[in-house]
């Protein structure tokens, strides 16, 4: 191998000649005069990806406007609002949408409430071992998939599960948490916790510890420091974590499917049922569009309320002080 390269013998090391080759290839593909456009080039993958997602919505929208013909099991050729009418008139879809939205709100609030102290402890602790412990306990479940974790929860919450064994041992009446809405919420909160902690930790790292000390020395008790200083300064992280947890919950499928016992479907379950149980791609598409609209609307409201600055675009400079 090496000898064939030396045979051509310009005497330059292989690595450099390889670089020459790459350089020539680059010149061919992206000439130097294009250099001012280079930063935009890096944006291209993101634009493509987003564009692809948006493009994916077009066939979805198209299908959602075509009711199913039961005689041939094909979607009608002519546009009609039948599928949306079905969504509006069948109360079950309202129930499922409300259940999903409520779960989004509850899970987001509970996850943030648990993740904030966790992230704070992880960022602030002086003990390396504690930080490691917190990180490991955060990541360990992260590597275990959602489905496996859901089944793990069933082992704990099931009628003959660990929780009831414990309650029984304490002489307490058994609980029946498995396959309830509460079980779905518990499973979701545990699933979302790492996402929230990982998004809050950098935001809290960006808050200098001196700021907290200053607040205390200026007379603020810990809760006042949390409310007046930590909360507003970590807002970008909180809003970002909230949006991520909310949208992930809103679109979750596995947790209600496995832990809900079949009676606690979310919108995603309804989409699945429409596509596969009913074979009605039009109705499924209408549900998908509805889900997209609801999710976007909520995120839009949050961003409008807190401003884009919450994501750190505008006020990021302040952290300099």
């Amino acid at each position: 191998m090496a000898s064939t390269i030396h045979d051509k013998g310009a005497g330059r090391p292989v690595g450099l000649r390889l670089l020459d080759l790459l350089e020539a290839a680059r010149e061919l593909l992206w000439p130097a005069r294009m250099a001012p456009l280079t930063p935009w080039l890096f944006l291209l993958p993101a634009v493509l990806l987003t564009g692809l997602l948006a493009a994916g919505l077009i066939p979805l929208l198209d299908a959602s406007l075509r009711p199913l013909d039961r005689a041939t099991f094909r979607l009608a050729e002519d546009y009609a609002l039948g599928n949306y009418a079905t969504l509006a008139t069948r109360p079950v879809y309202g129930v499922i949408a409300l259940r999903t939205l409520m779960a989004g709100l509850i899970v987001t609030a509970a996850t943030l409430a648990l993740a904030f102290p966790y992230a704070w402890m992880m960022v602030r602790t002086q003990h390396a071992w504690l930080r490691k412990l917190l990180l490991v306990s955060l990541f360990l479940p992260f590597f275990i998939g959602q489905v496996v974790r859901a089944y793990g929860w069933l082992i704990i919450l099931g009628k003959q599960g660990l929780l009831n064994a414990l309650l029984d041992g304490l002489g307490l009446p058994p609980s029946s948490l498995a396959f309830t809405y509460t079980a779905v919420l518990i499973g979701l909160v545990q699933y979302m916790l790492p996402f929230a902690v990982l998004m809050l930790a950098p935001a809290l790292t960006a808050v200098p510890v001196e700021v907290e000390l200053a607040s205390a020395s200026l007379g603020a008790r810990p809760f006042a420091t949390f409310r007046h200083i930590l909360l507003p300064m970590a807002r970008p992280g909180i809003v970002a974590a909230g949006i991520v947890v909310f949208t992930l919950t809103l679109t979750d499928f596995a947790m209600p499917e496995i832990m809900g016992g079949g009676g606690n479907d979310f919108i995603a379950s309804a989409v699945y049922d429409a596509f596969f149980q009913l074979g009605d791609a039009g109705l499924g598409a209408a549900l998908g569009i509805g889900l997209t609209l609801v999710g976007s609307a909520v995120v839009g409201v949050i961003l409008a309320f807190f401003g884009l600055g919450t994501l750190g675009y505008v006020e990021g400079r302040e952290e300099r002080s």
Binding site: E210, L213, S321
Partner: peptide, 16 residues
């Protein structure tokens, strides 16, 4: 917060 002490920090720690 119960001591009557004002403090100025090296990084100032102003609330941005």
């Amino acid at each position: 917060w119960r001591r009557s002490i004002g403090m100025v920090f090296q990084k100032l720690a102003l609330f941005p």
